[in-house]
Write a protein that binds this DNA or RNA. Structure first.
Lengths: 330, 330
DNA sequence: CAGACTTTGGAAAACGCTTTCCGGGAGGTT
DNA sequence: AACCTCCCGGAAAGCGTTTTCCAAAGTCTG
């Protein structure tokens, strides 16, 4: 293992000089010494020991990313956006997947704190649970007290910077668009009862229908994934339009309808939420509310990395996109 | 920032004792002192400084993962498998995405070396390029000389442990299955000319056809993604069956045929490779060669982490799965 | 050309942990 | 009772960097 000291000795300079040459310092080093050091480093195959560097500097070059599930394209897209920002800034990223276990999320914040990462990004909807939220907040506070920066993509409940999709507004806009197509009877395929993203989307959708004087939708709960959409959709009947609170659930619903011999959009219209790009080749193509996922990830990390100006929240509004899975009635 | 020394002082014990209590050591500590230390740590909100720990121990608790593109479900699935293993072993995962730039891959190995990660996992097909391969090997060798462990998922070209899908065999089996359906004229939608995974799949497919005494397929090259499949498919004509070398390219091909008014499978059969699970709800469902992606990632990491027994290669064979996108002729 | 700055190189003190030694006390064996 | 072991606690020496001081050598001004 070749150390900086080896390089310094080999180049005939002091440790300080070698350090200044090899790891961006504010101080200048004369051209001739600089060349010697660089040569020595190359010859010996020197690689900075980042752990030592982090210890000495008191700050690392890595950021932490906590997501629920990397194989869910929603999280992959957000993570990708954040990682591009990290890459541009020369930061490495450490990822933890919680598999939707809130305790794991808390544990990851603690671990990332131990790693002294520069920033941590929490991606994914919160659950309506006072105690869990408080525990997570406490862990985050502890991290931030010692200089850590944090941001989240989801709801602004943690006292950190947040990029928050306006789920109510988006769902309401979707409801109006679907009503505009002539639909009057709706079902909503929702996620777990206490998952806030799901709750907000349901609430926004229902509120808009009420405003239009339409009957309240029937709400069916399932897990927040493809299976949840499938199983919830098996219970749907007597409506002309179904709103699945995520595209991934909508995919499950589409499969369920197909298996039941119900045609989309001829027999029932289906809309999702998120506009997952890997799903754009679905047949029929999915009407949805577009969220700029990669950009949300990128912006969240940028906020976390920016100089502290107190916790800020950026609201992102979705854009309704009607495609083939919904059709006009009458 | 509360340090171990603070904890030790607060508990009225030595630094050594505090260390032994809080960070798994081989040595025992008496129950009363142990309790004091744990209490002090909890009261002060102590968090181990991992950088210091890594420096002192000379070994870190993180592994590095290098993939081409996290939003590609192929890589997401493999990464997920590897991450589950890491999680079970209490290891954190640092991810780098190369966006298919071989130089970036080399740079990441160097960076991960600097991080002194326990193991690095390189996921993704190699390119047939002597010089790049040599450079990467050199970087890997340097890493391994100082105790680093490495493995790859792809071709066994790097002198490290490898999990290698048998692309030739899988493609050949697929060709035989398709010929068994009565197809006689084929086109292959291939990736970049020098991408080995693509080359092998094309070669295996062609070899099997030749063995069966069938005419050689027409090979069309495109990028290794959905767009590549789409654009290659626009040039297809006069065949009854199309083999896209990945499911993701097959999705593009399906879209292209749809846009051209060509029905699948009535007018042309389409098959892919990989069996990406998020694509299982495609209509028509895709015939493909199943690869156990998550398991491949998991096994690769397990090999890398296992005690050194010299570089080993595990071959994974794919399983042909015929679904709705291919139909029997005649 | 003297005094005041500005550069540039080096010595050495952190940074926060792990672990090797030491020593003292407890328990076991003749 | 004398001797050996074992156990457990603490002191202190690293681990490989960064960075703060110093000192020496320029470089400017007036």
């Amino acid at each position: 293992m070749v150390t900086l000291e080896d390089v310094a000795r080999h180049a005939g300079v002091s440790l300080a000089t070698a350090s200044r040459v090899l790891n961006g310092s504010t101080r200048q080093v004369g051209a001739s010494l600089r060349a010697k050091v660089e040569l020595a480093a190359a010859q010996l195959g020197y690689r900075t020991n980042v752990a030592a560097q982090t210890l000495a500097r008191g700050a690392s070059n890595v950021i932490g990313l906590v997501v629920h599930d990397l194989t869910d394209p929603y999280f992959a897209a957000i993570a990708d956006g954040a990682m591009r920002v990290a890459e541009n800034q020369g930061l490495m990223v450490m990822i933890g997947t919680t598999h939707r276990d809130p305790q794991r999320e808390i544990a990851y914040v603690s671990t990332l704190n131990a790693q002294r990462v520069r920033a941590v990004l929490l991606v994914g909807s919160r659950i309506a649970d006072e105690q869990l939220t408080r525990q997570l907040r406490e862990e985050l506070d502890r991290y931030r007290e010692t200089g850590g920066r944090a941001a989240c993509v989801g709801q602004d409940l943690l006292g950190v910077d947040a990029v928050v999709p306006d789920n109510r507004l988006g769902a309401a806009a979707l409801a109006r668009a679907l009503a505009g197509l002539g639909h009057r009877s709706f079902a909503v395929l929702a996620g777990p009862e206490r998952l806030i993203a799901s709750m907000d989307r349901v609430a926004g959708f229902a509120a808009a229908l009420e405003e239009l004087g339409l009957p309240a939708p029937r709400v069916l709960h399932g897990s927040f994934d493809r299976e949840g959409g499938y199983s919830a959709a098996t219970q749907v009947s007597g409506v002309t339009c179904v709103f699945a609170v995520t595209d991934v659930m909508a995919v499950g619903a589409l499969a369920a309808f197909r298996d039941r011999g119900i045609r989309v959009p001829e027999d029932v219209s289906v809309a999702g939420f998120d506009d997952i790009s890997t799903l754009r080749d679905l047949v029929p193509s999915l009407s949805t509310v577009r969220l700029p996922l990669a950009e949300m990830g990128a912006r969240a990390l940028e906020m976390a990395l920016a100089p502290d100006e107190g916790a800020r929240a950026q609201v992102v509004t979705g854009e309704v996109i009607l495609r083939e899975s919904t059709r006009a009635l009458g």
